[in-house]
């Protein structure tokens, strides 16, 4: 439920007292629109910062100013101060947004594509193939996800590319599972049955009906994970895997500031706030989209 009638509905939602609509329904419709608006605005703002990083940054993010180490916020010439090595915080934050966005988007996009294919082919047939795919995911990925990512990142070694690979691997099972659940609902829908009755082949149905209709809910689900990816990806860099110095990264920057936490808390605090803001943006956006687009979500 929780959607308004004039919205495009990718999958006929399971009815459930949506008739008695009234106030709550109207309000929550408004709420998911608000969430989407707020979330999209935040994410767009960060994207803009990432694109314009060369113009926003007063300095090269790695440029060291030995005399101006640990300047506070508002120091002339350094709007947001400097870190231990005297690098400009504003420049590093601006450039750091690029890696955070990459971490949020790239693994989800790749894992989403793989999951979409695996999930729709697996679940379309139902029965054995569905069980096989789902149980297979359970078996191979019995490892707790966070640990798996860390173990893979540790094995592959540091670097942005390896970090993206490890996050992608971790994301494949949930994306596959979600697609399979959505497809399981879709394949029972009348328009799929109609297509089947009119003699369409399975492959046609999958490509013309199942896949296009799964994209929206799967995308909504992926968006709702993006916030956690920002937090978690920065966390891997924070513990020393993932992004390596001197490249600017928010997780790394938090770690850099740990030693001077009592003297100059802004060095750790600012990149933390940046992570919270971007992650919250994705979470608002994802929650709203899921309310609107995901047939598995009821409330």
């Amino acid at each position: 439920m929780d959607r308004t009638d004039n919205e495009p509905i990718p999958v006929a939602a399971p009815t459930g007292g949506s008739q008695e609509g009234g106030w709550p329904r109207v309000l929550s419709g408004v709420r998911s629109h608000q969430g989407i608006a707020v979330g999209a605005a935040i994410v767009m703002a960060v994207v803009l910062v990432a694109l314009l990083a060369p113009f926003i940054s007063p300095y090269d993010p790695n440029e060291i100013h030995p005399i101006d180490r640990l300047k506070g916020i508002g120091t002339p010439g350094y709007l947001l101060g400097t870190d231990i090595q005297g690098r400009d915080m504003l420049s590093r934050l601006a450039w750091g947004s690029r890696t955070s966005l990459a971490i949020a988007v790239v693994p989800l996009a790749i894992a989403g594509l793989i999951g979409l294919l695996l999930g729709s082919f697996g679940a379309y047939g139902g029965g054995v193939s569905e069980t096989l795919i789902m149980r297979g995911m359970d078996v191979v990925f019995g490892l707790p996800p966070i640990l798996l990512a860390i173990a893979v990142a540790a094995t592959l070694g540091p670097g942005l590319f390896n970090l993206l690979v490890s996050l992608t691997i971790v994301l494949i099972p949930p994306m596959t599972r979600v697609t399979a659940q959505v497809v399981a609902i879709l394949r029972e829908q009348t328009f799929v049955e109609a297509a089947r009755a009119s003699g369409a082949r399975d492959l046609q149905i999958i490509f013309h009906h199942i896949l296009p209709n799964s994209v929206a809910p799967v995308l909504a689900y992926a968006t709702s994970l993006a916030g956690s990816m920002v937090v978690f990806g920065a966390g891997i860099s924070f513990i020393g895997l993932g992004i390596q110095p001197p490249r600017a990264d928010w997780g790394r920057m938090i770690n850099d500031g740990r030693e001077v936490l009592d003297l100059m808390p802004h060095v750790s605090t600012l990149p933390g706030i940046a992570i919270v803001v971007l992650a919250a943006g994705f979470n608002f956006l994802g929650d709203g989209l899921r309310d609107l687009l995901d047939p598995r979500m009821k409330v």
Binding site: I254, G257, S268, P271, A280
Partner: peptide
């Protein structure tokens, strides 16, 4: 939503 968006490693530092 904000609790979900809060990195534990950062919040820990803030708390300390």
């Amino acid at each position: 939503v904000f609790s979900l968006s809060m990195p534990a490693y950062w919040l820990g530092l803030v708390f300390i």
